[in-house]
Simulated assay, not measured.
Amino acid sequence: MSIEAKLAELGVTLPEAPAPAANYVPYVVAGDMVYVSGQISADEGGLITGTLGDDMEVEAGQAAAKRCAIALLAQLKAACGGDLERLVRVVKLGAFVNSTADFTQQPQVVNGASDFLVAALGDAGRHARSAVSSPSLPLGVAVEIDAVFQIK
């Protein structure tokens, strides 16, 4: 099954790749690697904001992380000229969770992205990752995730 077909089966339609918000590029292709800049949590309704451990629960944080993963795939698709079948694997995610000093469930929040990528991509979605706390993120978003992909 193609990646696009699997996404459709999961009820996911990739949005257009978001434009960068400052003086950087959304992705860099270097050889067979694609480095995607941090994607912030947003959906059709706008930014997904909040602070884990304060005004946001883990489940809502997981949904925000999933939206970051969807944006990462949109950037990957753009980097691959629209052909997601060029993906070999997700190599690494770097995740930042807007959370209070005493919140310790960042890995569970980022599972929202990791679980989605494995569901959508199978073994090619398994990756290394980091999941760290941040006292604040751009525009007050709940989650920001960057990624490294291998392509052919």
Rank of each mutant, 00 (worst) to 15 (best):
R89K: 14
G50E: 07
K92F: 08
L72T: 04
A63M: 10
G82E: 07
I70H: 02
A113F: 08
N111L: 12
D54R: 15
A69M: 05
D115K: 13
D43F: 10
C80R: 05
V110C: 12
V90T: 09
E44D: 15
V118L: 11
T51W: 01
S114R: 15
D123M: 12
P107K: 06
A119Y: 00
K66D: 02
G94T: 13
L93A: 06
L93K: 04
T104P: 00
G45V: 11
A69Q: 03
D43W: 07
G46N: 12
L87C: 01
G82D: 07
V58Q: 08
I48Y: 02
A124Y: 07
G122D: 14
A65V: 04
I70K: 03
A101S: 15
C80D: 03
L121D: 11
T49L: 05
G50S: 13
A69N: 06
L76M: 08
L87R: 03
A74D: 08
S41Q: 05
V90E: 01
Q39D: 05
I70S: 03
D83E: 12
K92L: 03
Q106Y: 02
A101D: 15
E59N: 10
K92C: 01
C80H: 03
I40F: 05
A60T: 13
L73G: 07
F96V: 00
L72S: 02
Q108G: 00
T100D: 08
A65I: 07
G122F: 11
R86M: 12
A119L: 13
D102L: 10
L87A: 03
A119S: 15
P107C: 10
K66S: 01
V88Y: 00
F116I: 13
L121K: 13
G38A: 13
V91Y: 06
L117Y: 10
A42K: 15
G38N: 08
N98I: 05
P107G: 11
D83N: 14
E85I: 06
N111Q: 14
Q108Y: 10
D54K: 15
L84T: 03
A74T: 09
C68M: 06
R86E: 07
D115E: 12
Q39M: 14
L121I: 12
A42N: 06
A113L: 08
F103E: 10
F96P: 00
G46P: 12
L73R: 08
A95H: 05
G82M: 06
A119T: 09
G81K: 02
A79N: 04
A71G: 06
R67W: 03
F116S: 13
A78C: 02
A63F: 07
K92M: 09
G112M: 05
F116N: 09
G112K: 03
V97F: 00
V109N: 06
T100L: 13
I70N: 04
E57Y: 10
A69S: 07
D55C: 10
F96G: 13
R89N: 09
G45N: 15
Q106W: 05
A119R: 14
V109A: 05
A119G: 04
L52E: 01
L52Q: 07
Q105K: 15
Q62E: 14
A95F: 04
C68H: 05
G46H: 09
M56V: 15
K77Y: 02
C80A: 14
R86N: 02
G53D: 02
D102I: 03
A64G: 05
L117P: 06
A63H: 03
G94H: 10
D102M: 12
I40D: 01
S99I: 08
G122I: 11
L73Y: 11
L117T: 13
